[in-house]
Amino acid sequence: MKVLVPVKRVIDYNVKVRVKGDGSGVDLANVKMSMNPFDEIAVEEAVRMKEAGTVDEVIAVSIGVKQSQETLRTALAMGADRAILIVAADDVHQDIEPLAVAKLLKAVVDAEQPGLVICGKQAIDNDMNATGQMLAALLGWSQATFASKIDVEGEQALVKREVDGGMQTIRVKLPAVISTDLRLNEPRYASLPNIMKAKKKPLDEKTPEDYGVDVSPRLEVVKTTEPPERQAGIRVGSVDELVDKLKNEAGVL
């Protein structure tokens, strides 16, 4: 079985985001970019499945600017076998919407026929939490979102999911789309020899036109603003003072 892992290049989660003064967006020029953390978890899971013998080939796919190559090289260094880059933007500030990403991924699935797609639950830049579900819909496949444990059992997968009330376990028919949550695994760091090896692994470059997919956005971003800042508060010296403030000043106790 082949596994497809979509990986997105996003602002590194440690970087302090700066909103541009003219309201046109977030400043991404000369900012550290990394693989979306949930996608690292997805790559790790796919590579572990390969190591366990359930999976024959792991294919990483990224859609965006040319620089997403770096993200794909990271996936290859973690253990993916080959990569596909779909160059769909030439400006780092242009985000491709989940619906368009899902359509492109569907085209890749049609061509590659994987038995499983493992994606992240959420990209930490647009915070959409949508692409995997949309892809499953377009393919007519089952979906198991927010996975914290995956067991592939023949033609099915048993997936434990993180939900509002706790955990839920479901069984999905393969092929399926599964999205990762934080507790699924701890992604490995790529070792230096593996980073060197990854440079020689195949990385195909495509465009949306190759797949006949229209990626023009459905949502127009009217403006991007900074959220209201909280006023810095005060320090209290003791628990007694805290209780007094909460009762008599804030009125919340």
């Binding site: 602002i11 302090k16 985001v17 909103v19 977030v26 930490i124 830049d125 647009n126 915070d127 971003v221 009217v222 403006k223 991007t224 603003t225 900074e226 959220p227």
Partner: peptide, 9 residues
């Protein structure tokens, strides 16, 4: 968006 560091319309 961006963990609430920006608000997008």
């Amino acid at each position: 968006v961006y963990a609430g560091n920006a608000l997008q319309t």
